[in-house]
């Protein structure tokens, strides 16, 4: 698999107050691939993906050293526009968090903020994004109904559609299926597979089989360090590091 690096870190270190949460992370993510981050709770997976769209900026006492490059630009450079960065790098969270508004408005919200007001254009965007998120067939007759009436799995796909509406390049997913049933999970996994045609996906997951199923690359993190990073096949069939082997085979601690 040969493609361009879309996001990369160099000697990345991060502290929450005195506590170091990330240590010397060097990682490169390829364009239009799915990268999974695995590791025990508190190992820094979520912290790392939050670095990518500067979500840690809002946390008091959070300090970062090192570089994070998005398309070659250092995203922590003072001249960087954070809003622009966040519209290029969308995020999906563990629990679906639709706005308490109609389905249509959930998706039209982002484009409106970015200045698109034509009803026709917005309708087109809503339809396209719902189709990309594999939700259109289930909701196209109910676009005016509140999003809160959707099932958990539908809500999560709505959140993905909402993220797609502002045409990001990267979609970060922080345990996107941990609150979903197996059927909804498998729909999201199928969706991730389809999304990588156009987007780069970075997913944090506690589900090892999920990482193995959906990703092209996998990074194993432990105590803030990226222990091993490689093609998913290699990590799950023949990891190089003893620690990775022990974690993924469940012989940890």
């Amino acid at each position: 698999m040969k493609s361009n690096i879309v996001i990369a870190t160099k000697d990345l270190n991060l502290w929450y107050g005195d506590k170091q949460a990330l240590e010397n992370i060097d990682m490169s993510v390829r364009e239009k691939s799915v990268t999974a981050l695995i590791g025990p709770s508190g190992c820094g997976k979520s912290t790392l993906i939050r670095v990518f769209n500067r979500m840690n900026d809002i946390i008091d006492g959070c300090r970062i050293e090192g570089k994070v490059f998005f398309r070659g630009n250092d995203i922590y450079d003072p001249s960087e526009d954070v809003m622009e960065l966040r519209s290029a790098i969308g995020m999906i969270f563990q629990k679906p968090n639709p706005f308490p508004k109609p389905i249509f408005e959930n998706i039209a919200y982002g484009p409106r903020v970015h200045g698109i007001n034509s009803k026709k254009k917005l309708e087109k965007i809503v339809e396209k994004c719902l189709k990309q998120a594999a939700l259109w067939d289930e909701v196209n007759d109910w676009l005016g109904d509140t999003a809160m009436g959707l099932s958990g799995g539908q809500q999560q796909r709505l959140c993905i559609a909402r993220a797609l509406a502002i045409e990001p390049e990267i979609i970060l997913m922080d345990e996107p299926t941990s609150s979903l049933d197996p059927l909804a999970t498998s729909k999201i996994e199928d969706l991730i597979y389809e999304l990588k045609e156009k987007y780069t996906v970075i997913i944090v997951t506690h589900n090892m089989q999920q990482a193995a199923r959906v990703s092209d690359y996998t990074g194993f993190m432990y105590l803030g360090e990226l222990i091993e990073f490689g093609e998913t096949k290699q990590i799950f069939e023949n990891p190089k590091e003893e620690l990775t082997e022990r974690y993924i085979t469940g012989r940890f601690g």
């Binding site: 090892m208 193995a212 799950f236 069939e237 023949n238 990891p239 990775t244 082997e245 993924i248 085979t249």
Partner: peptide, 9 residues
């Protein structure tokens, strides 16, 4: 049990 890595092998 869905073994992986050395277990799978």
């Amino acid at each position: 049990q869905q073994p992986i890595a050395s277990d799978l092998r």
